[in-house]
Design a protein around this nucleic acid. Structure first.
Lengths: 247, 247
DNA sequence: ACTTTTTCTTACCTGCGGGTAATATATCGG
DNA sequence: CCGATATATTACCCGCAGGTAAGAAAAAGT
């Protein structure tokens, strides 16, 4: 809207960094705008059916302009995917920073992950085909996926160790839970009557009730801390930037 | 192997139907061979990366020969998908024909469905993008998916009605279970140390243990009929044929 | 006001892959 | 052995979408 720069033109040239910074910012904002438009189209129509012309058109520019920000179509796909991965990563670091039993952590992860699957960048994690990426980028993506999967298993294993989760095969249990969550990304529609929060709550309960240990402590049903209300929302901080030049 | 027709050439022309039938059979077998080759390649590399030349090459023929059996690439995709759908349908009819509580039926369905996801045609149900189909075929596929989803919900609702399943939202519970199962189609690898039977058993237990009613009757842990052993395997009959000519 | 750098556009190239036409070859019925 | 039918091949078309080159337009720096 407002075109006034942070440093008005009348001010002395004391700080030439700010305009420089603002230029960089503008560029990154445009980059992100491209990603937002692209991820939306990719999810709507599928990567292969979306042309770069369409992406550009939606941004009121033309195709070659995109090449100022990205090397090619596959890099756009990868960056979309990365956005989602960063969101998950920040969720995980946050949970790891906190405390709680294995079961409690697993519940937090399930809740946050479920909500993430209802976002564009979150869904892109499970709806994009990694085979569309360059081998290099695909390797990065595979590694990230592996880390996420390992986190699920770790929480389950930790829960078994601390007695909050009953004995089971962590690998298969993680597959079952993660699969259920990942599938949200395939069926969730914004106009579908089910709010992300409701889905997250329900899945948290449904997916962990079978795992809770029944022997030592009594069956845990709702979140132990807040008896009735669930966590309203969790602010997903993040937004790192890679800073890798285009040319 | 053996090329001798059912009616040897020396016999009188009393039954000209058999050679005709055998011709038809040969044709259908080739059609199916195309589908088997195609589904494998589609799963391996992804639909868009597979060329018809590759499909043909794997069958030791050339691309245009495929057009004797299918209208085009998308029809091949659809027929692969249909093979999977027919397998699920036959599983469902079999379960519906039998008896058992809602929970028991749900368990049967989960078990059979999990095993199916470890097959090529089963996986094609969840790994192919319906948007690659013509609108007409996509509508058929959507309807089939809806029927399958409805079956999950029906079993859960029936279980709640007969007391074998505790109160829950059938829609979300079905999503959670089906999602977990569908995801198998994405991660299962034949060379991955986990046998389909083991996966099916584990998922059957894991996905239904949280749903079993604990109030009225005692907790149901294993299958109620057979106390220790689970169903070893279920023969998936089926293999209907559409019989729609190409030209 | 001039130059320089960044950003964007118009016009084009190019390869790939689905699909088709014309034609050859095997198979079948007689 | 001969025509008819199905089945396969070789050669081709062509539309599309990713990517590029060259230059205009806009900003930034001085």
């Amino acid at each position: 809207m407002d075109s006034a720069p942070p440093t008005p033109p009348s001010s002395p040239p004391s700080s030439p960094w700010l305009p420089f910074e603002s230029r960089r910012r503008a560029r990154d904002e445009k980059r992100e705008a491209v990603l937002r438009a692209a991820v939306q189209l990719f999810l709507e129509q599928g990567y292969h059916r979306v042309t770069l012309n369409e992406v550009a058109e939606r941004l009121n520019i033309t195709k070659p302009a995109l090449y100022n920000y990205f090397r090619g179509k596959d890099e756009i796909l990868f960056e979309c995917w990365s956005m989602g991965a960063e969101l998950v990563d920040s969720v995980i670091t946050e949970i790891n920073a906190g405390s709680g039993s294995g079961l409690a952590r697993l519940r937090k992860l399930v809740h946050a992950y479920a909500a993430l699957m209802a976002t564009d960048f979150g869904a892109s994690l499970v709806r994009f085909d990694l085979r569309d990426l360059t081998e290099r980028n695909a390797a990065v993506a595979r590694a990230a996926k592996k880390r996420i999967d390992a986190t699920f298993r770790d929480y389950i294993a930790a829960g078994m160790a601390d007695g909050s989760i009953k004995a089971c095969d962590p690998k298969l249990a993680a597959f079952a839970i993660a699969g259920s969550l990942n599938w949200i990304g395939h069926w969730y529609r914004r106009d579908g009557g089910l709010s992300p929060a409701a889905i997250a709550d329900e899945f948290t309960a449904r997916l962990t009730e079978g795992l809770a240990a029944v022997g030592p402590q009594h069956t845990i049903k709702k979140t132990p801390g807040a008896p009735r209300r669930r966590n309203p929302r969790r602010k997903t901080t993040g937004k790192k930037r890679t800073g890798e030049g285009t040319r």
